[in-house]
């Protein structure tokens, strides 16, 4: 148990150090660009651009941290919030890995498997993009070909169809209400679409956890 604590503690310690260092580097980058090309931003446009971007993305960002941390585990979180693409890549990858290894996200085994899976996924993503950037000229016609375009734009339905089968078959009773709620919301509320699904993830999570709690208390699960 002591050993167990120390691994988790070290994950948090190094996670914090790496995370905040990378933050610093990412903020230093625009500063350096300003210095190197000796220029300042267009302040009025910057304010306007930030006003259009910040409120929505900061709100989503903050909610995402609280929603995804319990699912990703500690190591997975420290990596995912730096490398990005959580809901369309890192989280499904980690969920699938934990499922196949038959470990729970809240256990230390789950923590380790999730970290391995997300680290591998991050490394592979970075390498693929690196190769893509090097070969960007020959690859552009392929990547932008109108024939392939639908395949890339339909990645989320293709991803969550498979994932849903695994989880719904395992939790049939629990899945009925959340899916019904989300179907009704997305079909009948026009404002809910690709751009706002991020906000609905925490709604879905909270609702499902609530339903699960009630069903568990009543001995239905």
């Amino acid at each position: 148990m002591k050993k167990n604590m120390s691994y988790m503690d070290s994950v948090h310690r190094y996670g914090k150090i790496w995370g905040l260092s990378i933050c610093a580097i990412l903020f230093a980058f625009p500063l350096l660009v300003c210095i190197i090309f000796s220029c300042v931003p267009d302040w009025a446009a910057l304010a306007k651009g930030l006003l259009a971007t910040l409120p929505m993305y900061w709100a989503v960002g903050i909610v995402e941290v609280f929603t995804y941390v319990p699912m990703l585990g500690a190591g997975g979180t420290y990596l995912s919030f730096v490398t990005g693409n959580i809901s369309n890549l890192k989280l499904p990858c980690a969920i699938d890995a934990m499922e196949r290894a038959n470990v729970k996200a809240s256990s230390e085994e789950g923590e380790v498997i999730s970290t391995i899976s997300i680290a591998v996924s991050s490394i592979v993503t970075t390498l693929i993009i690196l190769v893509g950037v090097i070969l960007i000229i020959p690859l552009t016609p392929i990547l932008e070909s109108p024939v392939l375009e639908p395949a890339f734009s339909m990645i989320l339905p293709a991803l969550f169809g498979g994932l849903a089968v695994v989880f719904i078959s395992k939790n049939l009773k629990l899945s009925i209400l959340p899916i019904l709620l989300m179907l009704v919301l997305f079909i009948f509320v026009p404002a809910l679409n690709a751009g706002t699904v991020g906000i609905m993830v925490p709604v879905g999570v909270l609702f499902t956890v609530g339903v699960a709690r009630i069903m568990y208390k009543k001995g239905m699960l």
């Binding site: 629990l174 899916i179 997305f186 699904v197 956890v209």
Partner: peptide, 10 residues
């Protein structure tokens, strides 16, 4: 499941 249901709705 909550997360998956949100994406299924979408």
């Amino acid at each position: 499941l909550g997360m998956i249901s949100a994406f299924l709705g979408y």
